[in-house]
């Protein structure tokens, strides 16, 4: 086995890169999609749940009250483009492209080219079936803020050293 294979503290997932959270408070690579929550530009009470599927780039965007987004009829709306941009900031463009199975020859290496490259393939409109689960994952994510700290030792964290490597 290689040193990495026999390391107890091998780094598997690079840490998220810091980014501003005003426009996109939540984005994740999960359930075979880049999915997340995008703030409405006009109404502080409203958020959009947006997603793009890996492989097909099928896209969906609706409000948290399940009203379809007017911009996401023919192709990616502004919310979806913002979501992809922020995903590239948080996870690094290479990792997002790999997750979406986006051919690296097509999109090049700059972050803003990710959405452009997908739009060029003429992606289909997906359904909004996943919106409820994405939104509940966002709420679960926020709920982490409310968990109490502890000063009892958690020795398990010894398996999770920090790393200076970036995504």
């Amino acid at each position: 086995m290689s040193d990495w294979e026999r390391s107890s503290t091998a780094r598997v997932v690079p840490p998220a890169r810091p980014r501003k959270l005003a426009k996109v408070p939540f984005v994740e690579l999960a359930d075979g999609r880049v999915q997340g929550v995008v703030s409405s530009g006009s109404d502080i009470e409203r958020v959009y749940v947006s997603s793009v599927a890996a492989g097909t780039f099928a896209f969906a965007c609706s409000t948290n009250n399940n009203r379809p987004c007017g911009g996401a009829r023919g192709s990616f709306c502004r919310h979806i483009r913002t979501l992809i941009d922020e995903a590239a900031l948080q996870y690094g463009p290479e990792r997002v492209a790999r997750y979406l199975r986006l051919d690296t020859d097509v999109w090049g290496t700059t972050e803003d080219a990710l959405a452009v490259a997908m739009i060029a393939t003429g992606p289909p409109r997906g359904d909004n079936a996943a919106a409820a689960s994405v939104f509940s994952r966002f709420l679960r994510h926020l709920a982490y803020l409310e968990l109490a700290p502890t000063t009892a030792p958690v020795p398990e964290m010894q398996w999770f050293p920090p790393t200076r490597a970036v995504a």
């Binding site: 994510h141 968990l147 030792p153």
Partner: peptide, 17 residues
């Protein structure tokens, strides 16, 4: 001895956060 403190967090809180 060791003194420690830990807390769960959202993944977007990093660095100085």
């Amino acid at each position: 001895v060791r003194g420690c403190v830990s807390v769960p967090k959202p993944d977007t809180i990093v660095g100085a956060g």
